[in-house]
Structure formats: C-alpha cells, structure tokens
Simulated assay, not measured.
Amino acid sequence: MQETRQAARSRRRRRRLMVGTAAGLVVTGLLVCLAMAMQTDPKKDAGRAPATTVADAQGTRPPTSPGEKPSTASPSTASPSAASPTAKAGGTTPKASATKSAAQSSATPRTAPATASLTGRIRPKVDYRGVATAYKAGTGDGACSFGPSADLMIAAMNTTDYETSKACGAYVLVRAANGATVRVRITNECPLPCAPGQLDLSEQAFAKLAALSTGRIAITWSLLSPSTSDTISIRYKTGSNPYWCGIQAIGHRNPLARLEVRTSSGWRQLARTDYNYFLSPGGSGCGGAIRITDIYGERLTVNGIGLRPGAVQPTRLQFARH
C-alpha cells in the first residue's frame, strides 16, 4: 500500500512539472511574440533610408568621388541657372551699383568699355540713311571738347551713332536727294530725339545742301579718310596731374579707336568719356608715352608729350589715308 501511495505521488509531481514546463513555454512564447511585435521591420527601414536621402538632396548635390567631401553650397550658389548671366571682369554690375550709377549720371561722364571691335557703329564703305537738320554752331565747339573750329563745316552726330564720343573727329560725306554734297567733321553730339542715322549740321553746312527754311531733308552719309596736311596733337585735360589725368587726341584723319599709356607693367588702355577724353583715374602713365590706334588698326606711338594741362601739343604724326 505504501509503495502504491509513493507511485501516485511521483505521478502527481511529474504532471505538475509537465504543466509548469508547458506554462513556461507558453509564457516564453508570448514574450517572444510581444518583443517581435514591438520591433520595426528592418526591410522597411532599409527602404526608407534612401528615400529620405533623395528627398533631402533632390537637385542639390551631385554624387561625390570617394574621399571627397560633399558640397554644402545651396543650388543658387553652387550651380547658377544657365539662363542667368554670369558676371565678368568689367562686365555686368550688381543692381544696386547700377541704380547708384544712374542716379549719378548727371555728375559722372559715361565711359566706353574696351571692345574687340575697332570700328564701332560707323564703318568704312557703308552708306547710312537718315535725315539732316540744322543748328547754330557758334564757334564750333561741342561735346567732343575740341574747342573752336577753324571752319564751320561741322556736324553733331546722333547719340546712338556718337557712341560715347567714338564718332568724334570723324569726317563724313553727306549727300542730299538733289545731288548736293558736303564734307563735315563730327565735333558734337545730337541728343534725343535725334534718331539713329540723323546728323544735325551747322547752318553753314546745311546751306550747302538745301535752304535753311527747308528745316529737314533726307540724306545718305558715309565715312571718309580724307587728304589732310594736319598732324595729330595731344592735350591733357585741365586739372591733370601725376595722380589723375585725362588725355585727348586732336586732328586725327581717321576716327580714334583706342588710346593707351605706357606703364611699368606695359601698355594700358584708357576708358573714353562722352566728352572725348581718355581717363587714367589713378594717374597710371600720366606724362609718359602715349599710343593711339585708329579704326583701321594703325598704331602711332607719341613720345615727348609733357604733362601740361590745357596745352595743345603738336606731333609730327598722322594716320594713313584709306
């Protein structure tokens, strides 16, 4: 009987162990499932990471080479739009500066930027059409700052073709519809409303073509390279000194394209004003050798011109006839 009771107790202990083990396994399984449920799906996370990178970098950063640090520049600074102009030396200016220049235009002379073209708007062997009007020329002085003219066969060029004084000193043959002609020298500027192609002739020159009472006539005109016994003179502007100077060439047969001064670093091209002086605002080259070039590309070097403001100093030089 005692053995029977011991066997029964052993069976009951085994059942309790089995039930406890099963319960433990169930609890463990539940805990494992719960832990797995709380974790994120690594595949989904792996898919989200590239999407976030693309969104952050869309259109801003190109791929980088191994070992290269990615650029932190924004799109506007790293890669300017192809439609936007890029600034060049001596070229475009910020809007603020442009506004300032416009506000000061009455006090600051216009200057012509250096260009590759020597001829500008007025070219040899080209006939230009326009109209002629007349004005009282007085002594013949005008925007070109040449001073009184020896004769009054002169004209004012419209602002467009005047081209920041590039037309100054040019000789022009003017033809009227009636066949009459007159040769004039450009000494002045005809402001708006003078249109491109228009010449405002001195009354003396206009009278060679038609009666002054006509007031306005159709013309054609072309550039000349005339025969002349004159030689070129150089004048430093009043107020010029070793630290600032303006230089002008007078009496040139052909229109002047460039004026340069010799400096310690070589020839330096000066900017031309609308009153027909070439300026060296820092004084570079003032009082030294001067080189002038006409629209045909001929260069003449002028030596021995002293820094004497206001004095007209003659040379023995003249451009070739064309």
Results as ranks from 00 to 15, higher is better:
L201M: 03
D274G: 04
A167Y: 05
N303M: 04
P62D: 15
A51H: 07
T77A: 07
G285R: 03
M157F: 00
T238W: 13
G251V: 03
A83C: 13
T159N: 08
M157W: 01
K125A: 08
T160M: 09
G251W: 07
P70V: 05
T108R: 07
R299L: 01
G67N: 03
S213F: 05
P80E: 03
S227C: 00
D141V: 01
T315I: 15
A8C: 05
R123G: 10
G304Y: 01
W244D: 10
M1V: 14
S74G: 13
T72V: 12
R129H: 13
P196G: 08
T92P: 03
P148Y: 02
R5Q: 15
I292W: 05
G120R: 02
Q269K: 04
W244E: 09
A155Y: 10
Y236S: 11
Q313Y: 08
P226V: 04
G24Q: 04
D41T: 12
E68I: 11
P193Y: 05
M38Q: 15
Q6A: 14
S145G: 06
L30F: 14
T315D: 04
G304N: 05
G67D: 01
W221D: 00
A271T: 08
R216I: 06
V27H: 01
C168A: 05
A205P: 01
S79N: 12
A96V: 05
S84L: 14
T72D: 07
A167L: 06
T159E: 12
F146I: 02
F146R: 02
R253F: 13
T52V: 11
E260G: 00
T92G: 00
I186L: 13
Q39G: 08
Q248K: 15
R5V: 09
S65Y: 15
G251T: 03
G283K: 12
P191H: 13
M18A: 15
A205E: 00
E298I: 04
S222N: 14
A137C: 06
M36E: 10
L173E: 14
G47R: 13
R11W: 08
E189N: 12
R253N: 10
A98C: 00
P309G: 05
L209C: 00
A102V: 04
G215I: 09
K136R: 12
A156Y: 00
E3P: 00
P193L: 08
F278N: 05
T220H: 11
S101Y: 02
C286G: 06
I186R: 07
Y236K: 04
T115P: 01
G47C: 10
S149W: 02
A289V: 13
S74H: 12
S79T: 15
A37P: 00
P50Q: 05
E163K: 00
L17G: 03
G287E: 10
A289G: 09
K237I: 01
L307P: 04
M36K: 02
S280M: 09
R253C: 06
Y135I: 10
T133L: 09
V174A: 02
I295M: 08
H252C: 02
R61K: 05
G266T: 06
A89W: 11
P50A: 11
T60A: 09
T86R: 15
A96L: 02
A156E: 03
K237N: 09
L256W: 07
A257C: 06
A320K: 10
T273Q: 09
D161A: 12
G310H: 06
A289L: 03
I217E: 01
